[in-house]
Design a protein around this nucleic acid. Sequence first.
DNA 1: TTGAAAGCGCTAACAC
DNA 2: GTGTTAGCGCTTTCAA
Lengths: 343, 343
Amino acid sequence: MARPPNPKPVTMKDVARAAGVSVMTVSRAFKADTSVNSETRARIHAVAEEMGYVFDVMAANLRAQKSDFVAVTIPTLSNANFADTVDALSRGLAGEGLQVLLGYDNYDVDEEERLIEQLLRRRPEAIVVTGGTHTPRTRRLLGNAGIPVVEIWDLPADPIGHVVGFSNAGCIEDMVDHLVAKGYRRIAFIGGDPEQDTRGADRKRGFLRAMRRHGLDAGRAAGVGRSPASMQSGARALTRIMAEHPDTQAVVCVADQSAFGALTECMRRGIRVPEDLAIAGFGAFEVAAICVPTLTTIDPLPGRIGARTAELLLALRAGTAPDGPQTISITPALRLAQSTGDG
Amino acid sequence: MARPPNPKPVTMKDVARAAGVSVMTVSRAFKADTSVNSETRARIHAVAEEMGYVFDVMAANLRAQKSDFVAVTIPTLSNANFADTVDALSRGLAGEGLQVLLGYDNYDVDEEERLIEQLLRRRPEAIVVTGGTHTPRTRRLLGNAGIPVVEIWDLPADPIGHVVGFSNAGCIEDMVDHLVAKGYRRIAFIGGDPEQDTRGADRKRGFLRAMRRHGLDAGRAAGVGRSPASMQSGARALTRIMAEHPDTQAVVCVADQSAFGALTECMRRGIRVPEDLAIAGFGAFEVAAICVPTLTTIDPLPGRIGARTAELLLALRAGTAPDGPQTISITPALRLAQSTGDG
DNA sequence: TTGAAAGCGCTAACAC
DNA sequence: GTGTTAGCGCTTTCAA
């Protein structure tokens, strides 16, 4: 029985009339912990289901001056790590009836500004942004929003509000330290467009800092074009590096995608990994654990970032969080594997 | 100057008072094509920016009885193809001021039901669901929603409304036909949990149908556990298949992830691809085009699915779409590569 | 346990 | 070009 589409959706008023009660009683019947005669409640639910009534969250929220959702921005949908963070965050918030409103900015701070303005128009109860670099206007918008702001996946020098993240520079430094400890000296870097992907740029900064600290040549670097880093661009970058610096012993990559691309290029060129060249990535993506040889990488624990962010937001809502802006530091895990001779 | 968070956000009324005009004039000043004295408009914008006013979309939409968003459900965030579809869809809708409200159901029809109910409560102007198999209640909810419903990534036998998709069974049949034409006879299938991932199950059905049509043994199959198919499970499935059917000549996989996992397992076991074993995947993910050897796969053209869906929705809104439910069939592209000896 | 009135922030419709 | 009135669908508040 395909009834024609309803031009005017059924409202509470319609349900109330049909059930012979006031709208207020219907309203109460749809809240879990309100006092309504249980028979009345059952009748209302039956009538509502029969009429195809769908509760209007927008109207309810307008009146109650809340929105039941948390805005979240990530650079891109096509990244399993951000997906894991969002997933963990969603799960953590779902228990309190909060929904995630997700937006992505394609690694562009101007798009981020537009996106955040859009999201704020929907009056979220909190906003979670990925990364710690923003336009001045974005900072102003967030600062004046009057809601909790959490910057994740980074440890900004000058945070807007709360922070749940890690040092992108620091973990690449750890990676370089590991390689130097293993005896590698001529180490190159693939990736990091400083004008655009701020986390990628931080990672490159970490590389440079570590190389200088060890007194090594930090001049071996190849960009990989616009983020997100692709496997193809990783392969091209490896080609360039081996052309310019054929004696390179190890390559640290901004992401596992570039690292895997570089690895495939080595396979095509007959460069043995790790015997001729060591390769390290970032992100602990699925491919790193299974490719041949397996890739040494850094696991930023994206699920933990999401879970801790959810905890923080719930604590803020409940008023149980400590006063003032919180900074929750996550320690990424070094995952040693075959591509650096650690397998 | 960190001013304390605003407990009461600035409203149009506040801006109106501060600018010395009525709320209606402020309202008009924020719409592009309404007549307001240009000086007045400029003053209002200045005052609003100064006060940190943020337009309340929810309130506007409640009054205007629209929502400015399209609900979209996908199985998972962690899949670059669904991300591409959503991305193309978002872009197509953005011009008309429509925003995507995204939800994911982890390949579970019951979660899908809960998700869709949630999304409908926000009164979307249309709903796009990935896949053509749903619970009876989901079908009822969608059928009675009174908004356009589009099922994508599938060609359901009994569609709820509109359709933009392709035959998951059909394209695997094409792949089998190709392998048979190349002389392969003992072909196995990896993946497809029929109880859960309906598209995966359709692909398996396509495999079985094609094998029977060619009069070949369709008994070589290994599941890969819950969707999404992982690289690890692909590797395990290959191990099982080679144990049970050591003479297998080719493996068709439900997804590139399983195919790549199988490929790595071959590398570890010294099985040469394609000389000893041919491997084919599905999805045309990034890894397929760059791994060694490159993987033969099927490109379902996810961007096109999103773009065509956006076009359809805009045409429906504009009233320029043909009457009745539309079915837009996308033809996936076979991408031949080295793993089947086509490179 | 239930109901009536008021109003959340905005805009359609109608004045002027 | 601008203002006034009414009201979107729901919940807060107060009363019964």
